[in-house]
Amino acid sequence: MSISRQALERMKEVIGGDKAVLAEILQSFIDEAEPLAESILSAARDGRLDTLGRAAHTIKSSARDFGDARLAALCADIELRSKQGSVSNAVACSQQIAQGCIALKEELAAYIGAEMNGEIP
């Protein structure tokens, strides 16, 4: 499991403890995950470092918020290298990020379901 229950609890505290609002925020990432994955893959394939860096930056922020440290580290690395202008294995890295993004999306969807059904204490 990539997401951290602790990170999500912290986010819930930040937004005032409202489960519905938390679900809306998570759902927002779920909606954006696939376009973001597409964006990072196409930017890596086309060599558009600026778009690659920005997409990695966006995924990194969300991954940190949801506690996915591995995905966040991958994004931070590719963001830094795109700023420096030297992404040697950009396509391979972006594929890992895209996969991580989709996995995160699925875990968040499961979390929302469990949260709404009262399965999470």
Partner: peptide, 17 residues
Amino acid sequence: DDTRTMRLKLAAAATAL
């Protein structure tokens, strides 16, 4: 903020205050 997820989080945090 250009990211909807982050916008929602920041707005919810400010509203909670």
